[in-house]
C-alpha cells in the first residue's frame, strides 16, 4: 500500500487563549473511511477546517499525497483532488440538480470562462452518470431550492465527486437527517469510497453512524487526540469512555 492520501503532522491552532487544536497528527489512506469524533468543543471542527484550507494552522503541516497544502485557498485544494460536503448543505438553489453537478464539472474541466454554448449542453451525460451513482437521477430536473435535506446531501456528494477526487472531506454528513436517510447516505458513501478507492475523512455526532461505517476512528478532546483505532478498540478505550460517559454523553 502506498503512502497516505492525506497526512497532517503536529497541527496547532490557538484562538486567543484557547488552544483549539494541540499537536494533532493523522493520516487517511485510499479506500478508507476515517471518522473524527469528539464531544462538543473538542476542536474537531477547527481541526477539520485546518485540513480543508478554511483556516491556516499556527504550526504543523498538512500534505495531500506528499504535497503541502499550507496557504492554499479552498478552490486550489479542490483542484488537487479534494471534494467536500458541508455540515449545512451548500448547493446552488437557483439551479436544477443536474445544473449543480454540471457547474462542478464545468469548473473541473476549466470551462468557466466560456460565453457562448449554453451551460446545459456541457457535460450533461457525465452529470447524469454522477447523479445515477448517488441515486438522484430521477430528480435531475428539480430545482435544488425545493429538495428535501437528505437529497441535498446526495447532490453535494455528486458535486464533490465531479473532480474525480482522491479525498472526500465530509463535515457532519448526516446532521439534520432522519435515521433511515443517515444509513442510506453512509452506505452510499461507503460504496463510493470502495469503488473509487477514495480516502474519506468525516466528522460525526451520531455514534451509530460512526461505529457502523468508519474503518477507523480518531477521537479528540480539548484540542488533542486521545484515541485512535477501529470501532471496537475505540469503544473499549478508557479515555474515550471517560470523555463520553463522564460528560454524560453516549
Amino acid at each position: 500500500m502506498s503512502g497516505p492520501v492525506l497526512e497532517a503532522r503536529g497541527l496547532h491552532k490557538r484562538f486567543g487563549g484557547v488552544h483549539a487544536v494541540n499537536d494533532v497528527s493523522l493520516a487517511v489512506h485510499a479506500g478508507e473511511m476515517l471518522a473524527l469524533i469528539g464531544p462538543n468543543g473538542a476542536g474537531k471542527s477547527t481541526c477539520f477546517n485546518l485540513l480543508n484550507g478554511q483556516l491556516g494552522a499556527d504550526a504543523g503541516e498538512v500534505r495531500l499525497e506528499g504535497r503541502p497544502l499550507a496557504g492554499l485557498k479552498p478552490r486550489a485544494i479542490w483542484r488537487l483532488g479534494v471534494g467536500r460536503t458541508f455540515q449545512i448543505t451548500a448547493t446552488f438553489a437557483s439551479m436544477t440538480v443536474r445544473e449543480n453537478v454540471q457547474v462542478a464539472l464545468i469548473s473541473h474541466h476549466r470551462r468557466v470562462w466560456s460565453f457562448w454554448r449554453p451551460a446545459r449542453r456541457h457535460f450533461g451525460n457525465e452529470a447524469d452518470a454522477l447523479l445515477a451513482q448517488v441515486g438522484m437521477a430521477d430528480q435531475a430536473e428539480r430545482p435544488c431550492g425545493v429538495l428535501a435535506y437528505g437529497d441535498l446531501k446526495r447532490v453535494e456528494l455528486a458535486m464533490a465527486l465531479a473532480n474525480d477526487p482522491k479525498l472526500l472531506l465530509m463535515d457532519e454528513p448526516t446532521a439534520g437527517m432522519a435515521p433511515s436517510e443517515r444509513i442510506a447516505l453512509m452506505e452510499l458513501t461507503r460504496s463510493l469510497v470502495r469503488e473509487r478507492r477514495l480516502a474519506c475523512l468525516f466528522t460525526e455526532h451520531d455514534m451509530d453512524v460512526v461505529f457502523g461505517h468508519a474503518d477507523r476512528i480518531i477521537v479528540m478532546n480539548r484540542g488533542s487526540l486521545i484515541a485512535e483505532g477501529d470501532a471496537a478498540a475505540v469503544r473499549a478505550n478508557p479515555a474515550v469512555r471517560e470523555v463520553y460517559l463522564g460528560s454524560g454523553g453516549h
Binding site: R75, A76, W78, T91, F92, A93, V112, E156
Partner: peptide, 14 residues
C-alpha cells in the same frame, strides 16, 4: 453559483 453560495462555489474550484 458564486451568488447562490460562495462557500460551495469556492469548494468546487470557482
Amino acid at each position: 453559483a458564486a451568488r447562490d453560495s460562495e462557500l460551495r462555489a469556492e469548494a468546487i474550484g470557482l
